[in-house]
Design a protein around this nucleic acid. Structure first.
Ligand code: FES
Ligand code: FES
Lengths: 151, 151
DNA sequence: AATATTTCAACATAAATTTATAGGAATTAT
DNA sequence: ATAATTCCTATAAATTTATGTTGAAATATT
């Protein structure tokens, strides 16, 4: 019904991936690795990371031995920041950010519905940080490992 | 960040429009009127209403004097039903409904984030009915009229 | 009963946007 | 110099958004 674009999905996975490497070492992470780990083509990742760089969520280091690192600590990056960078806005329908987008805002019978949903979502994504995502992710992987061991 | 498709937006406005006419008379509503009132091309409305008909949210009456009517009372139509009919699913990311959509679900660091957001949204749209939307809409229009009168 | 009118139904197609791949230039470490 | 890596530009494929054309069904009118 409401779709998170692949840019948003892939970009967030990219950020979580960088966060995991960030925790383990100070070395820049290369997209080739991200590509293999996440199963997303390098070429596409290259395009997706541009807005993340422009919005100063990641820093790039060029040349051999280069790669990408998070620009701030995972606790200081909100999921909302990531989605905003990737999608240019952070709303369910454009008329919420741009009042001129729909001509009929004043009589539109649905504006308030979307606004309510949007506020819910925004609250959720404002509270959640990359650190939260990282912890969920690590826990999940740890649990998965346990299970296979028990087997 | 997360976009409600125009199909979803237009389709819901179409349903609210039908609901308003439904309240005022038992006559079928023709798309030409909806088109003029909502500023959406008839041709596009014709396409959008097809899934609404298939999912039995509206009934069509052909021929002169025909048009469309709601298949059920506005209190019995959830916004979620409408979005489901229009988008074929009711989730933020496909992997929530279709586990095979993302290959890496088991190690994906973002699945739980989207799941949480999705549950929030779904709860919201499950609770809200066409009747709620109708009331919000009528109130809004009444308020708008008051304001212009005062002026 | 015949005809004209109204309206939905179906199909085709065009435009715009999103998704994805490709090639090579620029930069840096070794 | 060479290899590794980001950066930039182009373009292809798929999907979404929107319009156009014709036809079929039901109804109203005569
Ligand atoms: S004002 Fe934008 S959908 Fe109604
Ligand atoms: S499992 Fe679908 S986005 Fe991660």
């Amino acid at each position: 019904m409401i779709r998170l674009s692949t840019k948003g999905r892939y970009g967030t996975r990219l950020m979580v991936n960088l966060a995991r490497h960030h925790k383990n070492s100070n070395e820049p992470t290369i997209l080739k690795n991200v590509s293999e780990e996440e199963g997303i083509s390098i070429r596409y990742l290259e395009q997706i990371i541009i807005p993340l760089k422009i919005n100063r969520l990641v820093k790039s280091i060029r040349g051999a031995g280069g790669g990408y690192i998070l620009a701030r600590k995972p606790t200081d990056i909100k999921i909302c920041d990531i989605l905003y960078a990737l999608e240019g806005s952070c709303s369910l329908v454009e008329c919420i950010e741009d009042e001129t987008f729909c001509e009929k805002v004043k009589t539109c019978g649905t504006y308030e519905i979307w606004k309510g949903a949007n506020d819910l979502l925004r609250g959720y994504f404002e509270k959640m940080t990359l650190q939260d995502a990282l912890e969920i992710c690590e826990k999940k992987i740890a649990d998965a490992k346990k299970k296979t061991k028990v087997k």
